[in-house]
Lab assay of single mutants.
Amino acid sequence: MGFKLLSKLLVYLTASIMAIASPLAFSVDSSGEYPTVSEIPVGEVRLYQIADGVWSHIATQSFDGAVYPSNGLIVRDGDELLLIDTAWGAKNTAALLAEIEKQIGLPVTRAVSTHFHDDRVGGVDVLRAAGVATYASPSTRRLAEVEGNEIPTHSLEGLSSSGDAVRFGPVELFYPGAAHSTDNLIVYVPSASVLYGGCAIYELSRTSAGNVADADLAEWPTSIERIQQHYPEAQFVIPGHGLPGGLDLLKHTTNVVKAHTNRSVVE
């Protein structure tokens, strides 16, 4: 069995187990497998329904001669939608809004960016022009300005110390501490036991640490421990890039980060 097929099978099995364990909360999309990078042309966006009122959005972007996937989250909030992270750029984010209108038909009224990198804030200006209120932590807003990236308009308070959590509509926002970046936030959907790890969490097929220019490698494993301790009931975990899975993604990420750190020390 090929690795790609095995990865998709694991996603399907995880979703099936969740649907059985929580039949009222989960209505997993039966329309197909989780979209992969090879299936999404740059400039297009796919939506994948995880649970009743919960979707991931998947886009792709060219970077350094390669094409990478990027995940975000959409959560229903009454007759409105909360968006977590842009679709990595203005063109993708405009396509995301169009796809949401086509498939869901509810307005996106608020959006949260989970850290300051372009795959999370690139497209904020498109959201703002569409009347979406954009939010991020003060740290993310400051770092985005320093980096020359787009800056969300509103500040999220109460997320300055490791372990801080605040309720934001249908989700809980959690600051686990520094990891992929010093400002990275985690998003949890309690009604569906869905954990969105953003770039602080890796997919299972990833074996290298990737972009760690703004990471705190020493603190990252401790931050992941905080996530595990705060959300032990999480059933569906979405990484910032690639295929979702279960809580095993947290341990896998820790292993990859520690291996990278150990290699760096040896070198």
Rank of each mutant, 00 (worst) to 15 (best):
R141Y: 05
E39S: 12
A136I: 04
V189T: 02
S31P: 10
G210W: 03
R120I: 01
L5E: 14
Y12E: 10
D118V: 08
E80Q: 12
N149V: 09
G43Y: 06
L96M: 08
N255V: 12
G210F: 02
L127C: 01
V75W: 03
A59L: 04
L195P: 05
G105A: 12
G89L: 04
L96V: 01
F26M: 15
N149E: 09
M18F: 14
E145L: 13
S31M: 08
S30K: 15
L195I: 07
Q229G: 12
C199K: 00
S208Y: 09
L217A: 05
A94Y: 13
V194C: 01
E147T: 15
D125A: 09
S137W: 03
Q61W: 08
T254S: 11
P221C: 05
T261A: 11
L159M: 07
F116R: 04
G240W: 05
D29F: 08
G78C: 05
A234I: 08
P152F: 02
A218D: 14
H115M: 01
P239Y: 03
Q61N: 07
K4S: 09
L96P: 03
H252E: 00
G32E: 09
G65E: 09
G246P: 06
S139F: 05
E145P: 06
A90V: 09
S31N: 10
E203P: 01
F174C: 01
V187W: 01
V187K: 01
A129H: 11
A133I: 14
A21K: 15
N255P: 05
A165I: 13
I84M: 07
V171I: 09
P176L: 04
E233R: 13
G240R: 05
G242T: 05
G72V: 02
H241F: 04
L10E: 13
H154L: 12
E150L: 04
G43V: 05
N149R: 15
Q229P: 05
A19R: 14
S139K: 11
K91F: 08
T261L: 12
A19F: 15
H115G: 00
L9F: 10
T253L: 03
E150A: 03
L83E: 00
T60N: 12
T36P: 13
R142F: 12
S70R: 02
V108S: 01
V237H: 02
I104T: 04
A94L: 14
V187D: 04
S30H: 10
E33M: 09
S22Q: 12
V67Q: 15
A178W: 07
T222F: 14
V11P: 15
G246C: 04
R120G: 05
K102E: 12
V256D: 05
P244Q: 04
T86N: 00
W55E: 02
C199D: 02
I151V: 12
V194L: 09
F116Q: 00
G242L: 02
E172P: 01
V237T: 04
E145S: 12
S7G: 07
Y68H: 08
V189G: 01
I58K: 04
A215G: 07
K258S: 13
S160T: 13
R128K: 12
T93V: 00
S191E: 13
A51S: 10
A21G: 13
L10D: 15
T153M: 10
V67G: 10
H180Q: 05
A87N: 03
T254I: 12
S193M: 12
L217P: 07
N184F: 02
K251V: 12
G163S: 07
G177S: 06
A192I: 07
D77N: 08
P35E: 08
A90G: 11
Y188H: 04
V124R: 02
A21S: 13
T114C: 00
G158T: 06
P190R: 10
H180G: 00
I227L: 08
P190N: 08
R128H: 12
G123M: 05
F26Y: 11
L97C: 00
L83F: 02
N211A: 05
E233G: 11
S181Q: 04
W220G: 01
D85P: 00
H180T: 00
T253V: 03
R226D: 01
V265A: 12
L156A: 04
L82Q: 00
A165D: 08
I227N: 07
L24V: 14
G163C: 02
G197I: 02
S162K: 14
P69T: 15
G148E: 09
P244T: 03
A95I: 11
V146F: 13
Q103V: 13
A19T: 15
V42P: 15
P244S: 04
I17H: 07
R167V: 11
G53V: 08
E39N: 12
T36S: 12
L24G: 09
T14W: 06
I17Q: 07
S22N: 08
L73G: 04
S27E: 09
S31F: 07
L82W: 04
A130R: 14
R128G: 11
E203R: 01
F168R: 02
T253Y: 01
T93W: 00
D29A: 11
E33W: 09
G198L: 03
T109Y: 09
S161L: 12
S16N: 06
T134K: 01
D216G: 05
S22R: 12
I224E: 01
V256Y: 06
L250N: 03
M18I: 15
R263H: 10
G158C: 05
Y68V: 10
F236R: 11
G72T: 03
V45H: 04
A259F: 08
G148R: 10
P170Y: 01
I58Y: 08
V265I: 12
P244R: 02
S155H: 10
F168E: 02
I58M: 08
T261G: 11
D164V: 08
E39T: 12
V257K: 02
Y188K: 02
E33I: 09
Y188E: 01
A19W: 15
A25G: 13
E267R: 12
E39K: 12
L250Q: 04
A19P: 14
D119N: 05
P170F: 01
W88N: 00
G32K: 09
W220F: 04
L97I: 07
D214A: 06
D119C: 01
E145N: 12
V42I: 06
E99S: 14
M18E: 14
A178I: 07
I50T: 06
L143F: 11
F63R: 05
A59D: 05
A59F: 04
H154M: 12
T254W: 14
G245V: 03
L97A: 00
A66P: 06
P170E: 05
D125I: 04
L13V: 15
S208E: 10
V166S: 07
S155M: 13
A51N: 10
K91Y: 10
S38M: 13
G89W: 01
I74H: 02
L24R: 10
V37R: 09
A87G: 00
A133W: 08
T109M: 12
T14L: 10
L10Q: 15
E219N: 08
E99D: 09
G177M: 00
V75D: 04
V108E: 02
A129Q: 12
S137D: 01
K258C: 08
A98R: 14
A213F: 09
G210D: 04
Q235A: 10
V121N: 00
L9W: 15
A87S: 05
Y196G: 00
V257S: 02
D119K: 00
D64F: 15
V194M: 06
P239L: 05
D64P: 06
Y231K: 01
A15K: 07
S7V: 10
H115Q: 01
I100S: 02
E33K: 12
N184L: 01
N262P: 10
R142T: 13
L173E: 01
L81G: 02
D248R: 07
A213H: 13
V112A: 06
H57Q: 05
K258A: 12
V265P: 13
F3P: 07
P221T: 12
V75K: 03
K251G: 12
V121H: 01
Q103W: 11
R141K: 14
T253G: 02
H241R: 02
V42A: 15
T93D: 00
C199M: 01
V265N: 11
S22T: 11
V108C: 00
P244C: 02
D214F: 03
A144C: 15
S16W: 15
D118S: 11
Y12K: 15
D79K: 09
E225C: 06
D29P: 09
E39R: 11
A136C: 06
D119M: 00
E145M: 14
G72L: 02
A51T: 12
R263Q: 15
R263L: 14
N262S: 13
I58S: 09
A218H: 13
P221E: 10
S191V: 10
L82C: 00
F63S: 05
V108F: 01
D214Y: 05
L173H: 07
S16L: 11
G78Y: 08
S193G: 12
A209C: 04
S62G: 13
A192Y: 07
V146A: 13
S205W: 08
